[in-house]
Simulated assay, not measured.
Amino acid sequence: GVWRPWIPAPSTTPISAPADAASGPSAVIAPAPLVLPEHPTVLVFGDSWTYGSAATVPTLGYAYLLADLLDGETVVNGVRGSGYLKPGIDGPSFGERIAALDTSLSPDLVIIQGSINDRAQGVAGYREAVNAAWDAMAATYPEATIVVLGPAPHELPVGAATARIDADLSELAAARGWWYISPIAQDWITPQNYLDVIDVEAGRQHPSTDGHRYLAEKLAAALDELRAAPVTVAGGSETTPDE
């Protein structure tokens, strides 16, 4: 696939992910271009940003707005304060929440968002928790494409713990051949637009209603890029999608 700046450079020949991915994968697999039906069903799974915190009403959050931008349906599963290691305010950690998902749902796309909530949890067990959660999501919806949406900065400059989470998720996604979208690496939130996107007062550093609309538009545009990605074949040559 097209390797975005937030994904490590691929090897010349795609290879399988290492058996012990939790130990720190270095190999990457080129993901295939994103293919979605005309009116996709998208499960958006994440934390308070996915919940819609600080929007006038949660249903004005980015995950809900994404439905119209993709001309489809979004199923929103966001729990405030939740992370891969950290339990949330009104629900458990990611792994436990994935175990409780409706197995009858058949999403075309799963977006796993976040999370900055693991900043204080440290590195011990983090990659193992991520891999276990992702294994469970892939097993629950084996026909779905999974895209990982990394943490977005709630404050600037980006903290070291948030940057570490972003780097870990990027590397782990690359080892699986999954697309990874990094709002940090792509500068979605900058000093110039920070106060337009983030409600620093009543929203307690969550996106405002306008901020959620902006994030939905950025995410939809990023997904469109993944649809247009050329295919990388063994040996490093590329073929472009049919026009």
Rank of each mutant, 00 (worst) to 15 (best):
V2C: 03
W3H: 13
P5H: 12
A9F: 07
A9E: 14
P14T: 02
I15S: 12
S16D: 11
A17F: 01
P18W: 02
P18V: 03
D20V: 10
S23G: 12
I29W: 12
P31A: 09
P31T: 12
L36R: 01
P37A: 01
F45M: 09
F45R: 03
G46A: 08
T50L: 00
Y51F: 12
Y51E: 09
G52W: 04
A54I: 10
T56Y: 11
T56G: 11
T56S: 15
V57H: 13
P58D: 11
L60H: 12
Y62S: 06
A63R: 02
Y64R: 05
D68C: 00
D68S: 14
D68R: 11
D71I: 09
V75E: 09
V76L: 08
G78E: 03
V79M: 03
Y84R: 00
Y84E: 01
K86M: 10
P87Q: 05
G91A: 06
F94S: 09
G95M: 01
E96G: 11
R97Q: 14
I98G: 00
A99K: 12
A99Y: 02
A100E: 12
L101F: 12
S104M: 06
S106C: 05
S106F: 02
P107N: 07
L109E: 08
V110E: 07
I111F: 05
I111L: 15
Q113N: 13
Q113Y: 09
G114V: 08
I116Y: 10
R119H: 04
V123T: 12
G125V: 05
Y126I: 02
A129H: 11
A132N: 14
A133F: 08
M137E: 14
A139N: 14
Y141Q: 09
P142R: 07
P142W: 05
A144H: 03
V147P: 00
V147A: 00
V147L: 02
A152P: 01
P153D: 10
L156A: 04
P157M: 02
P157V: 04
R164K: 11
I165C: 07
D168Q: 11
S170V: 02
L172D: 10
L172W: 00
L172M: 13
A173G: 04
A173L: 01
A173D: 01
A173N: 05
A173E: 04
A174K: 04
G177N: 07
G177T: 08
G177Y: 06
S182R: 07
P183F: 02
W188E: 08
T190P: 09
T190N: 14
P191K: 09
P191R: 06
Q192D: 15
Y194A: 06
Y194F: 15
L195C: 04
I198N: 09
V200E: 13
V200T: 15
H206C: 04
T209N: 04
G211L: 04
G211C: 06
L215P: 01
K218F: 01
L219A: 00
A221R: 06
D224G: 08
L226A: 02
R227L: 04
R227Y: 00
V231L: 13
T232I: 14
V233C: 06
V233W: 15
A234H: 15
T239G: 07
T240P: 00
P241Y: 05
